[in-house]
Design a protein around this nucleic acid. Structure first.
Lengths: 266, 266
DNA sequence: CGACACCTTGAAGAGGTTCAAGAAATGTGG
DNA sequence: CCACATTTCTTGAACCTCTTCAAGGTGTCG
């Protein structure tokens, strides 16, 4: 049986970009591309751009790069040169310490920007691993900086992207600091499905790209706890789970789990 | 007995800025100031600035604002206008949700920049509360953006500040996601004392500006657990604790707690 | 000095982890 | 295309850490 991809789960509003796939087939790295006709534009670029500015940005986003499932886009310690806009595929970012700790800091999908961690020290402090075959737009940061001195909307956009990431992480801190296992997993599922929905996929069905262990790392739980919590949700009729294929039956119920149990938690 | 401030704990390399205190006494808001002769400059400004650029920056940092202990510099929902550089005092930032959850997302001290959370949505998403009487430099963000189009070093600096905050939050996620109570508190103390030391204070002595409950919120623990863990450290001869006054007796021991127990934790 | 906020400590209980075993899916090579 | 190895997932039982509830102590401020 074929793998059920989000594309097959729902028609969606994204075109499969079939023609491009052929064009790029012979050369997986370093390809001329253009934001100006990218169907993900509204996700990773400022909305209100003059045509001429958009053309300038095309010169920044000069190349694409493919990343096979399991491969790393960048690794802790790599020299920082570029930000990356995810075109297709799904990533996790995670930090690991010398003493063997590790933590998944996020899961990223099409239209999201990764690499921001590298700016401070001019080298990356985490790993970005593709959880399925992926393609990213490479945006050399020096060029972003240069152009954003010229194009105010781009400057503003870069600032917003970084601020958004800071606010997102606040949310994760809230989750890790104050939620119990069920609340964490419910919040996780709702967040994932909401982001997928914004990309034209189903509101209720999703295919997890990550293992239980990776979910657990992100949520500060052991994989067994993640598995048990899924089972509990199934028992309670909130979701259907078949391995990595999840169908949400009771969105409101999940929301209630996240919100309602709150007064008891500091 | 007088409150023991970090200043009295060690001579430090910071001047008390005594003269200014008088000048500002009659008017607590909106005062002309200058980065060019601020003794915290190396903490919140790019190091290598031409004199002329520094003068330009002086025009951005036009005013200061005093915040009394317990008062808020900004609140969730406030319109975002400025970033703030802490001149004196100590802040906590925290998020609260409608359903009553809350999470301290950080503690900030002199030389650190707060307000970055407000950029995305042009309004703040968390509260910044002064934990002791404080003074901040107000930096209108529109002016920062304008000037950073001109002064490359400032642009780079703004990017680095935001990236640094992202990386810091990764560290907190690691702490919340993978550490046990002792490890969290040890990491917390080491981090605080290291930042204070960078500001000229003692390596081993510190005065906590926050309650056990606030520490607990930040570390994802209940206040009783924080208290008990302090007691355990005292028993083990790692620290002396007299209310909020902490003296670290065995820095390496604390480091060992943070690092050594790691292999058991995923 | 009394009210209030903050901190400490004990005992019982809940939630999550650990260890272990087995089932289900996936990938590999003949 | 099937057999086998590997990875991933599920479930149970015992254990441990942290929380909860409760009471009392300490410090601070009007």
């Amino acid at each position: 049986m074929l793998e059920v991809t989000p594309e097959t789960l729902e028609q969606g509003r994204r075109e499969p970009v079939a023609s491009e796939t052929k064009i790029h087939a012979m050369n997986s790295q370093a390809l001329k591309v253009a934001c100006s006709n990218c169907n993900l534009r509204e996700l990773c670029m400022p909305m209100s751009l003059k045509a001429e500015d958009l053309e300038k940005i095309d010169t920044v986003v000069a190349t694409r790069r493919k990343v096979k499932r399991g491969a790393r886009l960048y690794t802790n310690g790599d020299k920082f040169t570029s930000l990356y806009a995810i075109r297709t595929g799904f990533f996790k970012t995670c930090i690991t310490t010398e003493d063997g700790r590790s933590q998944v800091t996020g899961f990223q999908m099409a239209g999201e920007i990764i690499g921001l961690d590298g700016i401070v020290q001019e080298q990356h402090t985490c790993d970005a691993v593709a959880l399925e075959d992926a393609e990213v737009c490479v945006m050399p940061f020096e060029q972003i900086e240069e152009l954003s001195r010229e194009v105010v909307a781009l400057q503003r956009h870069v600032h917003k992207i970084m601020s958004r990431e800071i606010v997102r992480e606040h949310g994760v801190m809230l989750l890790l600091g104050s939620m119990r296992a069920e609340e964490r997993l419910a919040a996780f599922l709702l967040n994932l499905v909401q982001r997928l929905h914004a990309r034209g996929f189903s509101q209720s069905e999703l295919l997890l790209r990550m293992t239980r262990e990776e979910i657990g790392s992100y949520l500060g739980l052991k994989l067994e706890t993640v598995s048990r919590t899924f089972s509990k949700f199934v028992e309670d009729g909130m979701v259907e789970v078949k391995q990595r294929h999840v169908r949400i039956l009771d969105t409101d119920g999940l929301k209630l789990i996240v919100n309602n149990n709150a007064q008891s938690c500091q």
